[in-house]
Write a protein that binds this DNA or RNA. Sequence first.
DNA 1: CTTTTCTTTACCGTTTCCGTACATTGGGAG
DNA 2: CTCCCAATGTACGGAAACGGTAAAGAAAAG
Lengths: 221, 221
Amino acid sequence: MQHILIIDDDVNINKMLDAVLIKAGYRVSHAYSGTEALLFLSGEKPDLILLDLMLPGLSGEEVLPEIKGVPVIVMSAKVDTGDKVNMLLGGAADYITKPFDIEELLARIAVQLRKSEAADIDDSLTFDDITLAPGTWQAEVAGRDVRLTKTEFAILKLLMENPRQVVTKSILLDRISEDTPDCVESSLKVHVSNLRKKLRDASGKDYIETVWGIGFKMKSE
Amino acid sequence: MQHILIIDDDVNINKMLDAVLIKAGYRVSHAYSGTEALLFLSGEKPDLILLDLMLPGLSGEEVLPEIKGVPVIVMSAKVDTGDKVNMLLGGAADYITKPFDIEELLARIAVQLRKSEAADIDDSLTFDDITLAPGTWQAEVAGRDVRLTKTEFAILKLLMENPRQVVTKSILLDRISEDTPDCVESSLKVHVSNLRKKLRDASGKDYIETVWGIGFKMKSE
DNA sequence: CTTTTCTTTACCGTTTCCGTACATTGGGAG
DNA sequence: CTCCCAATGTACGGAAACGGTAAAGAAAAG
């Protein structure tokens, strides 16, 4: 379950958000001041933060730069565009003005969470019509589930993480050897071959391109 | 330079956006209908897309699901929250209502691009209209991709790293021999010859100059 | 312990690349 | 102007890399 931290001192808003977000299936924590928020963050890392700008103690503007690695949606009563701009450029993932529509807030929350899911946890990678599912070692190709072995998954993941770049054989071997220690170049060939076959069987296309003498890359289309 | 595709049929808005975005340092392309947009995307992949919902032919709602791998900011005159929500959940990275504040649009663009920017740290080399991307092991000459072998790439890279200097044959041989051990002067000539041919085929120009009895250098134009 | 699945090795046909050989061009010295 | 030799470019054979299949060995599951 995904975890949202609300940083706001207004009790009514807190209660309202709490109810809505829990109903939407999120886990919710609260901080009622800037300092409390930072304290909380030093111990735990939520998936998303809703930050009110009007806070006792440290203001929202001061808290924002201290938050690292978690997307922040700023909530504010200020409608000034300049503020909006500053917040977005200052690291906020999004900005929403009070009073806001609950549906819109939920949509923006969903967008941000989906994003961090795709970026942070290196699962849920997407390339063309290949999707690497989170957790499970499975890939969805052109709508069909494809079963991959640990090694195949690792290779595909590495290639998909660097869509345009060539991944050298030595790098490939390096990263694979974390799971499967003694893998040499000749073995790698077979894994790539098997991987290609599985992808081809599922979609008819060939995604992996050979760069002679260097390594492999995803077809740039 | 980052590349933005605007999908909108309104000529005035197009002109305005064009001016603003170019001034802000972006490269801008245009598509005036949904079908044109998809055609464009089949050939090229921009870094960001601005999508108007009111389009002739395919509507913005129909185009959106077809766009993969590029963040989309939806622009619309509709203020209906339901639409907003649907767009965001339907894959849009962000949503902005017309008429919008230019500063806010720029801020939102910057936010979206910041992510992909971090991904490709380009330590690419450039000389005239040749671009070498060490990560991708490919050369782009006069806009076209040129496939180079390991050795050719190494030679060209070495020459481009020292644009005005003459690179002696012995230095070239030294650096090349890391990958291809037994390469002598006579072989080197062949590689240079092949390299010249590939560059000439792509652009019509000859970039490599011979310094008689010493080695080679890039033409200083 | 048996069965299944994954990884590795081995092999062969194919593709791509590298280096040598040789004919041709072009600059420099007498 | 002519000769000499470095430099260019093409052609070809050998070597290395790649792709795929089959089967042996290792690991995990039942």
